[in-house]
Design a protein around this nucleic acid. Structure first.
Lengths: 202, 202
DNA sequence: TGTACATCAGTGAACGCGCGTTCACTGATGTAC
DNA sequence: TGTACATCAGTGAACGCGCGTTCACTGATGTAC
């Protein structure tokens, strides 16, 4: 049966949402078309009316997860611009660590994206660059220093949450230590770049 | 035909080596039993004389890759102990970025390991903790500071190489920038912890 | 040391299974008049 | 506005395929005498 244009858009969105969550939780190869469509309230054949292949869905689903994650990190907190500390506290929290499906697609799929084609890696690269820009703006110092620090901070955020997730099952205490340590050391790194007045531990 | 004990050990080793390289290159789900056995010079049925399942092979293969990578980072350079700068230069090089199969299993499979069972995640956790210990010994300052800095440095190394790999296809210049930036900022972080005499840029 | 035989790593055909994808069909939607 | 009909998102059975795993068999190795 044909469905209304509104319903078509809703169904497409449901597919992208379900795919994004499941891909982040279990990897692209770890989830089948059938389960994605089922969670979107459709049968498996419906996917091909919207996407040419699973890979195309993966590209859009992961890109969507990046945009959402980026939006969350740049959203104003109590009316003001988020600081580096705000970003670190959100990103390197045990909640984010334990919420693979709803979290940042860069962290959830970093090592997988390196093996995918350009359709998947291009949005990731854009998302990474944008995130570096956001962190850069919270820093002070020369343009070169700020950029280098921002690149390192974003890399450490991704590595930190990935390492915390990978160690969570076998050594929860170490996993927690990673989150605390990365948050504190990166916070100090950002603070160190600022005038002496704003310096000091978090 | 029965084979000699020596040959059995060689075959087992060949399986672990081939599996490790292929899993790092294309992920556990991205490689089949047939290809692994073929690259080890065996037929696919041979695997089950040595391992109960693909998962058991994956656990041993990834653990082997960690041990090898760890050994490379702790090996003396020109007779002396490797410094933080030595470790960073090796780990965050474009050679390491472009050598997925021969590189560090933590970086190649970080986000995948978080989804695997304990058999795979336990060796990863041990490898991570050991690596933190190695970095810790190159730092100075209070025990707490050293540990927090070492945890952050290892997380940033993993995140840095993972991000460099994920961005390499879509934006090679950004990928190079990540490696240079993380190397320099982490190097300065380590140097900053030392007495003033040894301070300064790399 | 030499001979007879039990062992078992490795072979390769075969297995069931779930995957991604296709396709003839359905029927409510949206359009042409 | 009301009616007739073309459209096409979604259905669900079916497809081929490659996967991980099993198993009867092989034959050189290693052991018992």
């Amino acid at each position: 049966m044909k469905v209304s244009k509104k319903k078509v858009a809703e169904n497409r969105d449901a597919l992208v949402q379900a795919a994004g969550r499941l891909f982040r939780e279990r990897g692209i190869d770890g989830v089948g078309i059938a389960e994605i469509c089922q969670q979107a309230g459709l049968t498996h054949g419906a996917l091909y009316a919207q996407f040419p292949s699973k890979e195309a869905l993966a590209a859009e689903a992961l890109a969507g997860g990046l945009i959402r994650s980026h939006a969350r990190m740049t959203a104003p907190i109590e009316g003001r611009e988020p600081t580096l500390t705000d970003s670190l506290d959100y990103y390197l929290s045990s909640q984010h660590r334990d919420n693979l499906g709803g979290g940042c697609a860069m962290a959830a799929s970093a090592s997988e994206i390196a093996r995918q084609g350009k359709a998947v890696s291009a949005p990731f690269t854009d998302g990474f660059a944008k995130q570096v820009g956001v962190i850069e703006r919270t820093l002070s110092g020369s343009a070169t220093d700020r950029r280098e620090q921002a690149l390192t901070i974003v890399a450490a955020m991704i590595g930190g949450i990935a390492a915390a997730r990978a160690t969570a099952k076998a050594n929860p205490a170490l996993s927690d230590d990673i989150l605390v340590a990365v948050r504190r050391v990166l916070g100090e790194l950002g603070a160190a770049a600022k005038p002496a007045a704003t310096r000091g531990p978090r």
